Amino acid sequence: MTTAIDPELVRRAADGDRAATAALLTDARPRVVRYCRARLGRIGGAYTTADDVAQEVCLAVLRALPGYREQGRPFTAFVFAIAAHKVADAQRAAVRDATVAVTDGPPEQPDSAPGPEQQALATDLARRLSVLLDRLPEVQREIVTLRVAVGLPAEEVGAIVGMTAAAVRVAQSRALARLRTLAADGLDEVAA
């Protein structure tokens, strides 16, 4: 899963080959979903918003594919640039649309999802971790997300963020050390 996407597959997909396009999206989609989930987290205990954004990313990649031309960077850099923009749009929309939903009434069937306490704990932990990540410089945050959550190799992440693989590894090490320091100060002390 962490292997680079075959440039020949990308070329064929950009030229309109349906099978190549399907294979390309099949390869890229799990990475995009992990990226969106890592950046957006769970809202209300579910990944619905992140998964919707991942779908929007895949559709945007599909629409942009005919105009894609190889420019010396891996195709994943193109995909994650689109993903970063879609995630930023979703984050802005979430702030803008923050409202409380009113339900029609009690559900007819018991809910098998985690209870309110488990959801609250998971949401709180995700919020605290997000706050910790937000305390990193943007490039380090992106590197940690792409390397740890998405599982991309340093070479691909370097192409995405415009750094060498060695520089990515150093930045990742520094970012993780900073996160350890922040976490040692206590997740309980992270501001709400």
Rank of each mutant, 00 (worst) to 15 (best):
Val61Ala: 10
Pro107Asn: 07
Asp15Gln: 13
Val100Phe: 08
Met1Asn: 09
Gln71Thr: 11
Phe78His: 13
Val168Gly: 10
Asp134Met: 06
Leu65His: 11
Asp27Trp: 02
Ala159Gln: 15
Ala77Asp: 09
Ala19Arg: 15
Thr145Ser: 13
Ala81Met: 03
Tyr68Gln: 12
Phe80Thr: 11
Ala171Val: 01
Asp52Leu: 02
Pro107Cys: 05
Val150Tyr: 12
Gln55Gly: 09
Cys58Leu: 08
Leu24Cys: 08
Val79Glu: 05
Gln140Ser: 14
Leu125Cys: 01
Val57Cys: 14
Gly45Arg: 04
Leu179Lys: 14
Thr49Gly: 04
Ala4Trp: 04
Ala177Pro: 03
Val32Asp: 08
Pro7Ser: 08
Thr21Pro: 02
Val100Tyr: 06
Ala28Gln: 03
Gly158Arg: 04
Ala159Phe: 01
Ala22Asp: 13
His85Glu: 04
Ala98Ile: 02
Ala14Pro: 06
Gly105Asn: 07
Thr76Asn: 09
Gln118Tyr: 00
Leu125Pro: 05
Arg135Phe: 00
Ala167Phe: 00
Ile82Lys: 07
Gly105Gln: 11
Phe78Arg: 12
Ala101Val: 14
Gly115Met: 00
Val131Arg: 12
Val53Glu: 06
Arg147Thr: 13
Thr145Ile: 00
Val144Met: 09
Pro110Gly: 05
Ile160Tyr: 04
Leu136Lys: 04
Thr2Pro: 04
